[in-house]
Structures are given as C-alpha cells and as structure tokens.
Amino acid sequence: MSNTIDHEGNPYVAHHFVDMDQQHESAKLGVWLFLFTEILLFSGLFCAYAVFHSLYPEMFLEANKLLSWKMGAFNTFILITSSMTMALAIREIQLDRKKNCVWLLVLTVILAGGFLVVKYFEYTSKISHGLLPGKFFNPAPEYAELLKDTENPQVFMSIYFFSTGLHGIHVVLGMVWLGWMAIRTANDAFSSKYYAPIEMGGLYWHVVDLIWIFLFPLLYLIG
C-alpha cells in the first residue's frame, strides 16, 4: 500500500522501497547477513585449527615459534587503529563533515596498506626459509632442527597461510571498497542523509578486524 507514497523527494531511494529508513535498514540487514557468511567461512579454518591443535599440541607449540609475534602484534596495532579511524569516518559523515570523513577513509586505506606491507615481509621471510604449506614445506636447516621432534608441522603452515591469506584477500577487498568510498565522498555523493555504503564498508572492515583479533593470538601467541 505504501508503495505509492511519494519518496519524500529523496533521490537515493530505489523504486521498490517506501522510504530512506526502509532502504537503509534493508541494506544494513543485508550486509550483516553477508558478514555472517564471512564469519562462517572463516569458522572452517578456525575449526581446522582447533582440531589439529588438539591432534598435535606439541607440534603447534613448536611451530608457532616460526612466526614472528612482533610482526603480528604490530599488525594487530595497525588493524585496531584502522578500525577506529573507520568508525570515526562514519561519525564524521553522520555529522556532515565530509572532508574529515574523506581523510579518515584515506587513513584507513593507508593503514590497511601498511598491514599488507608487514604481511609481505612476513610471507617473504617464511618463503625464503622454506616454511610453506603442505608438500612445499622444506624448512631451512635451523628450522628443521627446531621441528625435528614434531609431527606434521606442514599442517600448521598450511593453516597459517590459508587463514592469513584468506584474511589478506579480505583486507585487499576492503581497501578497494573503502578507497572507492573515499572518492565518492570527495565527489559529494554522501551526506548525513545518505551514507549507507560507507557504513556497510565500515561493518565489513570491523569484521576483518574481528577475525584478526582471533587469528593473532591463535597463530602467533599460543600455537
């Protein structure tokens, strides 16, 4: 019935929605549902981690020393910071301070880039030492010595690479989306009346952070 109600003059409301509120809420629910699928996607890796941790506890204890917890901690710091800048960006657009919003979005993207740079150094170090997943696992002598009493350390490296790799892909996707949002905000596409895409990007970015909050201690600290 309400379909015929005028769209309150808001040009952002699509034809099949009644008003901005309905559209905004729908988009938000949609994104939340999408985020659930992301969480469940990662849950498979967490499950694999949990099962293999219980199968080979000693191996995990040794193998986690292969990872640099300092780099991991630094990355955690970067990601938490970016999460805050993201949250602030949404606050700024809610208050119609578009310029601040653009800068905060850019800062978020830069921090995400920083995260990936650290990740790059981590990966290259692992690769140069032959610490690779599965059948490519061919540790350098000093690591081979460390791991000689453990069973199947390649499984740990598999889980490490798969979960951080999948997470890294999500970081890249987040950068693309948030960068695009920064450009659109700069072009005046959003205001306090309509900023759903930024908010959706923000929710996504926080989930990327959430997953890292769990990955960091599991992989780098407790092993």
């Binding site: 694999a48 293999f52 080979y56 690779l132 997943p133 599965g134 059948k135 490519f136 069973e151 199947n152 390649q154 499984v155 598999s158 889980i159 798969f162």
Partner: peptide, 15 residues
C-alpha cells in the same frame, strides 16, 4: 588447496 598444495588437512597420508 589440499589438491594443489598437499596441505595435509584432509589427506591422511599427509597428517
């Protein structure tokens, strides 16, 4: 990934 890298998560021969 198991097929490509022999990850050892599902294949018993690899742990």
């Amino acid at each position: 990934l198991e097929k490509v890298t022999g990850a050892g998560i599902f294949d018993p021969a690899l742990g």
